[in-house]
Amino acid sequence: MLPAFRRLMSTKIPTHFKSVVYSAESLEECTSVLSIQNYKPREDLEKSIVLRTLAFPINPSDINQLQGVYPSKPEKTLDYSTHEPAAIAGNEGVFEVMSVPKGETSLTAGDWVIPVQANNGTWSNYRVFSKATDLIKVNGLDLYSAATVSVNGCTAYQLVNNYVAWNKGSNEWLVQNAGTSSVSKIVTQIAKAKGIKTLSVIRDRDNFDSVAQVLQDKFGATKVISESQNNDKSFNKETLPKLLGPDARIRLALNSVGGKSSSAIARKLEKNALMLTYGGMSKQPVTLPTSLHIFKGLTSKGFWITENNKKNPQEKVENIKDFIQLYRDGKIISPKEEINTVDWDVHSTNDEQLLEMIKNAIDGTGKKQMVVLKW
Rank of each mutant, 00 (worst) to 15 (best):
V214N: 13
F95A: 04
L27D: 13
W344Y: 11
P115D: 15
E25I: 13
P241F: 14
V187C: 13
L66G: 01
A273D: 08
H293T: 14
I136M: 11
D44T: 10
L135E: 06
H16S: 14
S19G: 02
K76N: 03
L78P: 11
V211P: 01
L298F: 05
L292P: 03
S26G: 14
P313W: 00
E315T: 13
E307A: 14
M1V: 05
S23R: 06
L298Y: 02
D79C: 12
S106E: 15
R203E: 08
L34A: 04
E356N: 13
F56V: 05
I114C: 02
Y327F: 09
Y126P: 02
D44E: 15
F95N: 03
T365Y: 12
K73E: 11
K137H: 08
K311E: 10
K233R: 10
D204M: 02
E43F: 07
W123G: 00
F208M: 01
N231G: 10
K47H: 15
D351I: 00
Y327K: 11
Y80V: 00
I13N: 09
I202V: 12
V160A: 04
T299K: 14
V160D: 07
N161W: 05
S61L: 07
S81V: 04
A193Q: 04
A193W: 05
S35Q: 14
A86Y: 00
G366S: 08
L355S: 03
T349E: 04
S184T: 09
N312E: 13
V97D: 00
W304G: 02
D111R: 00
A273K: 08
P74D: 08
I333A: 05
L269F: 03
H347K: 14
A221Y: 01
E172Y: 06
N319L: 06
V187G: 04
L78R: 07
F235A: 01
K260P: 09
Y144P: 10
F208S: 06
A266F: 04
F295A: 13
S81A: 12
I324Q: 00
A86F: 08
G195A: 08
K368S: 06
L240I: 00
M275S: 10
V183I: 15
M98V: 11
L373E: 05
S210M: 10
F17V: 09
L107F: 02
E307F: 04
E92R: 00
C30P: 11
L199W: 08
I305Y: 02
V69A: 03
K321I: 07
L354C: 12
K271E: 13
R52D: 08
R328L: 14
S263C: 02
T188F: 10
K185H: 05
V214H: 12
K310E: 15
T108D: 13
A4L: 09
C30K: 07
E46L: 14
V164W: 07
A55G: 07
Y163C: 02
A147Q: 06
S145W: 07
A86W: 00
K197V: 03
L135H: 01
T306V: 09
